[in-house]
């Protein structure tokens, strides 16, 4: 594409806002720390206690909010572009519900730990995506069929998840429910590294596929005549998209709304046609960082961030449905 000044400016502003949100989030909490001390702590200076609070308690959580938010924004951008529909995001078409099912099975039936749960979420997300894809498949998975089937699948899995939690004994059900609310509470650097490793693996591939992805938005025939293997490209993008959602779900539980909204808000701001990956990722990071800060500090008690996003997301989803229905 041609040199895109507005897109660059938007990305720069988003980065700046993420930095501001990060600074606020690192300095606020039970022990308020002035920004200057936060800065010093990050650079390895400052008092030892302050350094511990900033780098060991607050920093990993902030990093995870940004990384997972970015992953969700990317995943949403991929699926909204593939389905050519703002409703076609992984939390709507059942992949998040499927990841939760996978995690529930591991928690409740095998009392698995963190990594097993993460693996279960990954497997559940991929299995759900495969089911939705196969059910929607008719000479290539069509956007709208995929969404309708995905929404149905999501509802079924939601009911199944609720049933699983009710069947379980109390302690297991509690831990499943806490995980299922979607929360960054109690996460540490131990959880940051696998996320970074996955993202380091996924993002360069996605970067290379972003131009073909935009070409695919013109329809399969047009994409094929520009030299793209549409079927293979779509499959690769779906795998990457599912992996990104599953990554977030595995680390923090199901967090809705970010992948639905981030690409659309980014699109409004950049005023670009189609879905744009980098602004979507940055917008997702900003949204989740802010939502997590609000969930931690705005209500006196620490709420899971998933509760925050699901309630904002409900209104947004309603608005989107009404707008799509009018068209």
């Amino acid at each position: 594409m041609r040199f895109d000044l507005r897109g660059l400016a938007v990305s720069a502003v988003l980065l700046l806002l993420i930095a501001v949100a990060g600074a606020v989030s690192l300095s606020s909490g039970k022990f308020p720390i002035p920004p200057a001390d936060v800065m010093r702590a990050l650079l390895g200076g400052a008092d030892e206690n302050i350094r511990m609070v900033v780098t060991e308690w607050r920093l990993p959580r902030l990093l995870l909010a940004c990384l997972l938010g970015g992953a969700l924004g990317l995943s949403g951008a991929i699926f909204q572009s593939l389905t050519r529909n703002p409703l076609g995001s992984p939390d709507i078409i059942g992949f998040s519900a499927g990841s939760y099912t996978g995690a529930l099975i591991v928690i409740l039936l095998f009392s698995g730990g963190y990594y097993q749960t993460a693996g279960g979420a990954l497997a559940g997300g991929i299995a759900t995506a495969a089911c939705v894809y196969l059910l929607a498949y008719r000479r290539g998975a069509q956007g709208f069929r995929l969404i309708v089937i995905g929404i149905g699948m999501s509802a079924m899995l939601g009911a199944f998840n609720a049933w699983m939690v009710r069947q379980a004994d109390l302690p297991a059900a509690m831990s499943a429910a806490i995980w299922g609310a979607g929360s960054l509470n109690g996460l540490s650097f131990e959880q940051v590294f696998p996320v970074v490793a996955m993202l380091v693996f996924i993002t360069p591939i996605l970067g290379a596929l972003s131009r073909p992805l935009r070409q695919l938005e013109l329809g399969d025939d047009a994409a094929r005549t520009s030299g793209i293997n549409a079927t293979r490209l779509r499959l690769m993008l779906m795998i990457l998209g599912v992996a990104l959602t599953a990554l977030a779900t595995a680390a923090a539980g199901p967090i809705s709304f970010i992948s639905l909204a981030a690409p659309q808000i980014a699109r409004r701001v950049t005023r670009k046609a189609g879905v744009d990956l980098i602004p979507s990722a940055l917008m997702g990071a900003l949204l989740l960082a802010v939502a997590d800060w609000v969930a931690q500090h705005a209500f006196g008690v620490q709420l899971p961030v998933g509760v925050m996003t699901v309630s904002i997301g409900g209104f947004y989803f309603l608005w989107l449905l009404i707008r799509e229905a009018r068209r």
């Binding site: 329809g219 025939d221 047009a222 189609g274």
Partner: peptide, 21 residues
């Protein structure tokens, strides 16, 4: 495929313009 795409161009019967392009 790209070499072919520089030789043959197709106007399909139906194409989709991304929203707002």
């Amino acid at each position: 495929s790209k070499q072919l795409a520089r030789t043959l161009g197709l106007l399909p019967q139906a194409s989709i313009a991304p929203d707002g392009i």
